[in-house]
Design a protein around this nucleic acid. Structure first.
Length: 474
RNA sequence: GUGGUUUUAGCUCAGUUGGUUAGAGCGCCUGAUUGUGGUUCAGGAGGUCGCCGGUUCGAGCCCGGUAUUCCACCCCA
């Protein structure tokens, strides 16, 4: 026997039950998206690396799955090396991005020559690319939803996969903060339908940028946000160590801690205003949060929506409001959704001054949480096979086929046992294993008399029925 | 990318200090029941012990490598 086949690390097969449950989640989310006026969109699983790189930070770029070029993928590299061989110093106009000769063993420098495509890392960047590509056909504000798999070359562990699905809704070309409020409401609604208790945290990147300005370290914005984001894990003492490692001085650290203490006060927004009295960007951020909150009060959510000034989120393209949803019950409480406003994403692709805002649901983690909390509805297979036709020979099988066709014409999901076998037990077992409730047993007597036996496998009772009665009263 | 962990029958897992023919439960197949599943009883099949290499008279067990599982970092849905 050949070695058993396997699937790549971090990927999974889904059996019938799992697929049904995943579809249940997808349909629930889709229903909310549609109710709020979002239109569907699908994009290819692969994009040019040029489109993908530089949008997710250095860490993100490393997690991109690259696709090897087709054909002789080393050809371009060989040609380049041949041309470079004639020059001591590489002609910068020839390949400005390359500095010096490419060593065939250097993965990073070699990559552009052997791979030009990659699997998408999220749905937001492909969406921005789509909007810029189709800017002349699109009516702004443009609202779309997208539910497709994405890929990340991450180390898998619980709730972390290399292939997983995201469900995104985005509005592009509208600066109104009503969008933010509605998207938050959509989170609330979807998780209510799914019965998952969640806490929704919001923040504004402008506050974090303003903090960096206020402590005189605008160049250290990223390390600052990374340290803040980890606060709930590291605690305040861990934060102080992290800040010190990142090169912040004690005065700066003290200001950061002061900023943190604000989040604990009753009137966060008021205190934030005085804290950022001299930083315009900070004031803008506070005002935006205030405005969003005035709308969410209007829209009333069932789950708690709170301001968390430590919320940072990794994706570098966010510039305004940011939001994160965390499961709030059970032993497994991962982040199951996140989003925010991005002012410059389309600008990178050549369409400036078009702001976008969106949210994302993590299907796979939502699934894991629902499994953990035992939240899946029991009856997810209503529309599946109700009737199995059992038979004994070629003649009764053909007869069964015509009866089955009638049942199907009447919108009853029905099957004929495909193989000819004298063993009725085997056919009933098939029905039992596949949770098919009714079995119609067709022998030569039944075929001739037109009187059929229908067995209800749920209780073992049998009734004699006419051809039409078989598929009625199910 | 760093550190740890897991892998034995279709599934879940035992397997002692390195020693004859590697076990259990469930599942599967056959029969009791030549036209009745889910219950019961009787019998049976199924394993190059993840893969490659090494040590040894001898390896499921020890050593190296590799893949994979799960976990902690990192980061994130």
């Amino acid at each position: 026997m050949a070695a058993k086949p396997t699937i790549p690390q971090g990927t999974r097969d889904f059996d019938a039950l799992t697929v049904r449950r995943r579809k249940h989640i997808l349909q629930t989310i889709e229903q909310v998206f549609m109710k709020y006026g979002y239109m569907p969109l699908e994009t290819p699983s692969m994009e040019y690396l040029q489109t993908l790189t530089g949008k997710y930070g250095d860490e993100g770029d490393q997690l991109l799955f690259k696709i090897l070029n087709s054909g002789d993928y080393l050809k371009k590299l060989k040609e380049f090396q041949d041309q470079a061989a004639g020059h001591d110093e590489l002609d910068q106009t020839y390949l400005p991005s390359m500095n010096g000769k490419v060593n065939a063993l250097d993965s990073k420098l070699t990559l552009p020559f052997i791979a030009e495509k990659g699997l998408r890392y999220d749905l937001t960047v492909p969406f921005a690319r789509y909007v810029v590509m189709n800017r002349n056909e699109i009516t702004f504000p443009f609202k779309r939803y997208q539910m497709q798999p994405v890929w990340r070359a991450d180390r898998p562990q619980k709730g972390r996969y290399r292939e997983f699905w995201q469900c995104d809704a985005d509005v592009i070309g509208s600066k109104s903060l009503i969008n933010e409020a509605e998207l938050i409401k959509m989170y609330d609604e979807a998780f209510c339908y799914l019965n998952i208790p969640v806490s929704i945290r919001i923040n504004n990147r402008k506050l974090l940028a303003a903090l960096a300005t206020k402590i005189n370290a605008p160049d250290k914005f990223i390390p600052l946000t990374v340290a803040l984001d980890k606060l709930d894990k590291t605690g305040e003492s861990g934060l102080i160590i992290d800040l010190e490692k990142a090169g912040f001085n004690p005065t700066q650290t003290t200001l950061v801690l002061e900023f943190l203490s604000i989040s604990k006060s009753e009137s966060v927004l008021t205190v934030l205003k005085s804290f950022f009295a001299e930083v315009p960007e900070g004031l803008t951020g506070v005002n935006e949060l205030e405005e969003i909150f005035s709308y969410t009060n209007l829209l009333t959510t069932k789950n708690l929506v709170s301001i968390d000034v430590t919320l940072a989120r990794g994706l570098t393209y966010y510039t305004g409001a940011i939001v994160e949803v965390v499961a709030n019950a059970g032993s497994f409480k991962p982040s199951i959704g996140g989003g925010g406003r991005y002012d410059n994403l389309t600008g990178i692709f050549g369409l400036p001054d078009v702001s976008g805002v969106g949210i994302s649901f993590g299907l796979d983690r939502i699934y894991d949480v629902m499994e953990d909390l035992n939240l899946f509805p029991i009856n997810l297979r209503k529309k599946e096979t109700q009737l199995l036709f059992c038979h004994f020979d070629e003649a009764t099988r053909i007869h069964a086929l015509s009866l089955c066709a009638k049942a199907r014409n009447n919108n009853i999901a029905a099957e004929v046992y495909p193989d000819v076998t004298k063993k009725i037990a085997k056919q009933l077992e098939y029905a039992d294993k596949n949770q098919i409730r009714y079995a119609v047993i067709i022998g030569s007597n039944e075929m001739e008399s037109g009187n059929y036996v229908r067995k209800d496998l749920s209780n073992g009772t049998q009734v004699a029925l006419s051809a039409e009665e078989i598929y009625t009263n199910i």
